[in-house]
Nucleic acid binder design. Sequence first.
DNA 1: GACACGCTGAAAAATGTTTTCCATTGTCGA
DNA 2: TCGACAATGGAAAACATTTTTCAGCGTGTC
Lengths: 305, 305
Amino acid sequence: MLKPKEANSLESRIQSHYAELPPAERRLADLLLGFPGDIATYSASELAEMAGTSNAAATRFFRRLGYKDFSEARRMVRGARSWGSPVYLSAPEDRVRQNSKTVAAHIARETNNVSRTLEALRPDILREAADALIAAKRVFVAGFRNSSVLALYLYRQLSIIRDGVVLVPSVGQTLGEDLAGLNGDDVVVVLGFRRRVAMVETLISVAKRRGAKVLLVADSSATAMPKKPDWSLLCEVRSESPFDSYTAAMSVLNLLCAATFRAGMPTSFERLRDVEALHDELEELDTVNWIASVGMGETDAEDAS
Amino acid sequence: MLKPKEANSLESRIQSHYAELPPAERRLADLLLGFPGDIATYSASELAEMAGTSNAAATRFFRRLGYKDFSEARRMVRGARSWGSPVYLSAPEDRVRQNSKTVAAHIARETNNVSRTLEALRPDILREAADALIAAKRVFVAGFRNSSVLALYLYRQLSIIRDGVVLVPSVGQTLGEDLAGLNGDDVVVVLGFRRRVAMVETLISVAKRRGAKVLLVADSSATAMPKKPDWSLLCEVRSESPFDSYTAAMSVLNLLCAATFRAGMPTSFERLRDVEALHDELEELDTVNWIASVGMGETDAEDAS
DNA sequence: GACACGCTGAAAAATGTTTTCCATTGTCGA
DNA sequence: TCGACAATGGAAAACATTTTTCAGCGTGTC
C-alpha cells in the first residue's frame, strides 16, 4: 500500500486514514469533512469540543494524519486555500502538472458558479415556489436532453415529500398522455437548460393556457424566451470544458427540495420515513434478483488488494 | 466620544480610525485591508510580524479599533464570514428573514462542499481514470437509487465522447444481461452514494473478478467498504437539509468528463460535433410529434380551477 | 478469569500567545 | 538645551492552547 504522505490536503489525508481511525477520532474526521467554514480559524480545542471529544483526541488525530502537530496542520490548510490549490505537487512531472492546473481552474469556476447562482436567487421566489409545490394537486416535472437528468433528480426527491408527482416525458408515453387533465390545480416544473428543444416553450404555453402554474429552472439564456413562467430560478452553467456544468443547478434543486420539505413540514416528515423504509424493502428484493442473475452463487470470491 | 457603532466590520472600523493611526499601526491597517478574509486564521503575533512591527503594537491597534481585545476581533471576523450573505435582506418580514438565513447557510455549505471535494481529489487518479475510460473497449456506468441520476448524467456525457457506453441497470434488463461478457478490456464506473444497496459491493466484486477495472464515485462512507475499486473519487454530500446534496458529485463528474474528453482528444472532438448535430435532428422530430399529441392547434379550452 | 492491547478523557506539564509595563527614541515648542 | 509628549519594541507577566502523562475502561484472546 502506498503512503504518499507528502503534501496532500487535509481531506485526502483524512480519507486515506479513515479506515484506521478510532471512534473519537472518526467523529473528528466526520466533523472536518463536512465542515462549512474555514477549519484554520478554529483551535484544536474548539474542534474537539464540536466533535464531542477531548482535546487529547484532537492532538492524537492530527498526529496520526501525519502532521507534526496541530499548528503544522493549520499552516497547511491555510496554505492550500490561499494558494489556490497546491494539491499534489509532489510529482513535478509535466502532464500531472498541467492536469492539476486544470483542476484548479475548475475549482475556481465551479465555486464561483455556485455562489453566484445562489446569491442571485431570490428567497421570496423560492418560498412561493415551494409553497406551490406543496399546495398543488399534482406536480409535473419535465426535462429534455441533459435537463432530463435534473428532472429525474427532482422527481425522485419530490416523490419523497409528496404524492402525485409525475415525471415527463415518461418512457413509452406521449407527452399528451403524460399531461392528461392538466389544469389550474397543478404545477409544472420545467428544467429548461441550454440547447433547449422547442418543446420547452410549447410546454410552458400549454401549461399556462390551462391555468397551471409554471416554475422554470434554467440557465440565464432562458430569460430571452417569450413565454414567461410564473417563477424562474436561474443557474449558471458555464464551464471550463466544452460540457456545461449542472453543479449550480444541482445545488438550486437541493435547496428547492429543502424549502419544499419545510413548507410541507407536518406531512413531509412522516412520509420521508415511510418512503425510506419502503425503498429499503424494495431494494433488498431487487438485490436478491440481481445477485441471482449475475450468478454469484457458488463463489468464494477472492481478489487481491 | 460617542461610539454607537457596534457590529461594524473590521474593514469599516479600520477606515473610520485610519486617520488617527500612528505609523506602526497604520502598517497593520494596510496589511489587513490588503488581505480580506483569512485574518481570523492568523494570530496577532503573526500579523504583527508580517506588518513588520511588534506584537505590542498589534494589541494597541485592535484596542484602538474598539475591540475589547484581539480574540474579540477574531471572533467577529469569523462570525461575519459565516453570517455573510448580502442576499436580499430588503424584506424585514419574519418568514422571509428565516428563509434567507437558510439560503445563506446553504450557500456556505455548498461552496464549501464543492471546494473541499475538489481539493481532496487527486489529479493523478483523475487522469488515470480518464485514460482508462478512453482505452476501454466498453464502459459500464452503474448507479442505484439516487445514484442512478448521476449515472444517467455520466452515461449521457460519456456517450458524446465515445462509443460503447452502457447504462446499468437499464430498463427491462436484468443486471446479468446488462453485464454480459464483461471482461478485462472493460471499465465499470460505479456511482455508489450513501444508502448504498448491497448490490454495489456485489457489482464491484464481480467486475474485479472478471478482470475489469472499477472506478468508484461515492461519498466518504464508501471508504469503509471491504472491496476496493481501482480508483475512487470521493464527494461530499452532506447538506443543511435532510436531503443529501449531489452538488459536489455533479462537479466531479463534470470534471471527469472534461478530463476524459481531453484524454481522447483527436477522436472526441469530431464526435462531439456529430452527436450534437444528430441530437438536434432527432429532437426536432420529437418536438413535432409532441406538439401534435398535446393538441396545440385550436384549443382555448378552459376549465376553472 | 487474567492478560494484553488500544482507546479514552482529566489533569499536569510544556508550549505558545497576548497583554502590560517600561525604557528608549524622536518631535515639537519654548 | 530642555521638558512634555507620543510612539515604539523588548521583555516579563498573565493568559490560553496544545501536548503528554496516566489511570481507567472495554474488547478480544488465551
